[in-house]
């Protein structure tokens, strides 16, 4: 209950989006899928305001953004280009690169971490999903 008070703003936003909120062993867990990247970004902004260096070790924020196969995703690397790989894993050879800000096509999700995409040159391969943000 103390944690729900500490992260009240986050909990309220999570409730509005029907996310799963649970508490166990002094850790508050918020998980689920939100309709767009804005909501996810807002949640992380709130988290960062409360705990700028993510050091209190009492929150797990496992938020995914809804995206359907065939939808568009934007490359959100910090500055480097995003590797497109032959298979789902960093041990796989790089078959192409996507620029920051590029909007490419999601073909399917291999798993939560690796998504199969097609870039604007028609090259297909796998990218790490944390660097892809669904475009509405």
């Amino acid at each position: 209950m103390v944690l729900r008070e500490k992260y009240k703003e986050l909990v309220d936003l999570a409730r509005q989006n029907n996310l799963l909120i649970s508490e166990s062993g002094n850790v508050l867990k918020v998980e689920g899928t939100v309709p767009n990247a804005d909501v996810k970004d807002r949640m992380w902004d709130i988290y960062k305001q409360i705990d700028p260096h993510f050091k209190s070790n009492d929150l797990v924020l496992n938020i995914k953004t809804a995206v359907r196969d065939g939808g568009k995703v934007r490359v959100v690397t910090q500055e480097s280009r995003l590797n497109i790989r032959k298979g789902p894993g960093t041990d796989q050879p790089v078959v192409g690169k996507a620029d920051k800000g590029d909007v490419i096509t999601l073909i399917s999700k291999a798993n939560d971490q690796w998504w199969l995409v097609r870039d604007n040159d028609g090259e297909e391969g796998y990218c790490y999903s944390q660097y892809l943000e669904p475009v509405q």
């Binding site: 062993g25 992380w44 260096h53 993510f54 070790n57 797990v60 924020l61 995914k64 910090q78």
Partner: peptide, 26 residues
């Protein structure tokens, strides 16, 4: 680096851990 921290935390939280113990020097 401070600017990389949130990116890393988002990746790790997406692995659905019980908790993340962060002893990183920022």
């Amino acid at each position: 680096k401070e600017r990389d921290l949130q990116v890393l935390m988002e990746k790790l939280n997406a692995l659905n851990p019980v908790r993340v113990e962060n002893y990183l020097t920022v």
